[in-house]
Simulated assay, not measured.
Amino acid sequence: MAGRTGRGRPTIAQIAQRTGVSAGAVSYALNGRPGVSDETRARILAVAKELGWAPSAAARALRGGGTATVGLVITREPAMLGIEPFFMTFVAGIEEVLSDRGYALLLQVTPDPDREAKTYREWWSANRVDGIFLTDLAIDDPRLDILEDIGLPAVVVGEPAYARDFAAVGSDDAGAARAAMRRIAELGHRRVAHVAGPESFVHTRVRSAAMLEIGAELGMDVVAEVNTDYSLQAGVTACEDLLARDEPPTAILFDNDLTAVGAVRAATARGVRVPDDLSILAWDDSPLCQLSDPPLSALRRDILAYGEDAARTLLRLVDGDGVTQSVRTSTATLVERGSLGRAPRA
Rank of each mutant, 00 (worst) to 15 (best):
Q233P: 08
L281K: 10
A16C: 04
R60Y: 07
G93A: 10
E95K: 07
S297Y: 09
A260K: 02
I74S: 09
I12Y: 07
E199G: 08
A176E: 02
E77T: 08
R337Q: 08
T135C: 11
G102D: 06
D136E: 11
Q325S: 15
Y162F: 15
V335Q: 10
C289G: 03
P160V: 04
T329G: 11
S22Q: 08
R76Q: 13
M220Y: 03
A346I: 06
T89V: 13
D172I: 02
A311H: 02
S286F: 00
L107S: 14
A269Q: 12
D293T: 13
G151K: 09
V21E: 02
G320M: 00
P85Q: 08
A176Q: 01
I184G: 07
R4A: 14
T5P: 02
E84W: 05
F166Y: 13
S339N: 15
V222W: 01
V36P: 04
D130Y: 07
A346V: 07
L107C: 12
H194F: 15
R190Y: 08
G262F: 06
A216L: 08
E308F: 03
F201V: 12
A163D: 05
V36M: 01
T237I: 06
G197Q: 11
R312L: 13
V169L: 06
T259A: 11
G215W: 03
Y230W: 14
R4I: 00
L232N: 07
D141F: 04
A42V: 03
A54K: 06
R245F: 01
I12H: 07
E247C: 00
V169P: 08
G71R: 04
G65A: 10
G6W: 05
A311S: 10
S37L: 00
L315I: 01
R9Y: 14
T228P: 00
V195A: 00
G20H: 11
R43Y: 09
A234P: 06
A310T: 07
R182F: 14
D255H: 15
G52R: 04
L278M: 00
F201W: 13
L45H: 12
D172N: 14
L299N: 10
L105D: 09
P10Y: 01
P142L: 04
S27K: 08
A48N: 04
N31W: 00
G65T: 12
R190N: 09
L340K: 11
A61G: 03
G320I: 02
D140W: 06
S286T: 01
R273Y: 00
G197L: 09
P198H: 12
D229N: 13
